[in-house]
C-alpha cells in the first residue's frame, strides 16, 4: 500500500514540477497532433464542428439575453401603444435607417473577411476586418450623437427626464428606458466585437488562420452577424412605430 497521498502538494514549488511526467503522459498528443489541433480532438473536422456548435449555442444564449429585453418591450408596447408611438417620434428615423445601412455593410465586409480566411488570403482577412471596424465605428459614432441629442432634450430617463410632447402619460419614460437599455446593450456588444477584431488583426496578418483552420474567424463572424440581426429588429421596433398616425 502506498504511503504517498494522491492529494495536492501545495508545498511543491511551481516550475519544479515533474516535467517528465507531463511529457510521458502527453506524448501521443505532442507527437501525433498536427499544428492548430487541440490535444483532446481527434481531427480538424471534430474541432471545427465543436467550435461552431459551441458558437451557435452561445448565440442561443445571446438570443435569450436580448429576449428578456424584447419581452419587456412587447409587454409595455401592448400596454402603452399610444405613449410608445408618441415617444418614438422623438427619434430620428432617417438616421436610424442610415445606421441600419452602415451596419448591414459591416456585416457584408465581415463575410468578405471570412471568405478570405477560407481561401487563405490573409491580406483580405485584414482588409475585411478593418472595413468592418470602420463601419462599426461609424455606427457607434452616429449612436453617440443620437445619445447626446437625447441628453440635451432631457429624454434620458431618470431624475432629469422631461417630456414636452403630447400628454400620453408617464409610460413615455419607460420607452426611453427600453430605448437606452436595448440600444446600449447592442452598442456594448459592438464595442466588444470591435475590441476582438483589433486583437485579431495581428494573428490574421501573420497568417495564423489557414484554409484548414480558421474557426476563430468564422465563429467571430457569426457573433458579428448576430449583433446585426439584433439591430434589424431594433430598428423597426424603436424607430418606426406610429409613423403613419
Amino acid at each position: 500500500m502506498s504511503n504517498t497521498s494522491p492529494w495536492i502538494d501545495l508545498t511543491g514549488t511551481p516550475g519544479q514540477k515533474h516535467e517528465e511526467g507531463i511529457v510521458v503522459s502527453d506524448s501521443h498528443a505532442a507527437a501525433t497532433h498536427p499544428p492548430g489541433l487541440a490535444h483532446h480532438f481527434e481531427s480538424y473536422e471534430q474541432q471545427k464542428e465543436s467550435s461552431f456548435l459551441g458558437m451557435w449555442l452561445f448565440l442561443v444564449q445571446e438570443v435569450m439575453f436580448f429576449g428578456g429585453l424584447f419581452c419587456c418591450y412587447v409587454i409595455y408596447r401592448s400596454l402603452y401603444g399610444e405613449a410608445f408611438a408618441a415617444a418614438s417620434r422623438e427619434l430620428n428615423v432617417f438616421i436610424g435607417a442610415l445606421n441600419t445601412t452602415v451596419l448591414l455593410f459591416s456585416s457584408f465586409t465581415m463575410v468578405v473577411a471570412v471568405n478570405a480566411a477560407k481561401q487563405g488570403n490573409r491580406k483580405w482577412i485584414v482588409y475585411g476586418l478593418l472595413l468592418t471596424m470602420l463601419f462599426g465605428g461609424i455606427f457607434l459614432g452616429v449612436k453617440y450623437f443620437e445619445y447626446s441629442s437625447k441628453w440635451e432634450h432631457h429624454l434620458v430617463p431618470g431624475p432629469h427626464f422631461e417630456w414636452h410632447g403630447e400628454d400620453v402619460g408617464r409610460p413615455v419614460e419607460i420607452f426611453f428606458c427600453l430605448y437606452f437599455a436595448m440600444t446600449g446593450m447592442h452598442a456594448l456588444h459592438m464595442v466588444v466585437g470591435i475590441g476582438i477584431m483589433l486583437w485579431m488583426l495581428r494573428p490574421a496578418w501573420r497568417g495564423k488562420w489557414t484554409p484548414e483552420n480558421h474557426n476563430f474567424v468564422e465563429g467571430f463572424g457569426l457573433y458579428w452577424h448576430f449583433v446585426d440581426i439584433v439591430w434589424i429588429f431594433l430598428f423597426p421596433f424603436l424607430y418606426l412605430i406610429g409613423l403613419a398616425t
Binding site: W7, D9, P14, K17, G21
Partner: peptide, 8 residues
C-alpha cells in the same frame, strides 16, 4: 493528481 504539483 501527480502529473504536476504546486498552486500554479
Amino acid at each position: 493528481l501527480n502529473v504536476a504539483y504546486g498552486l500554479k
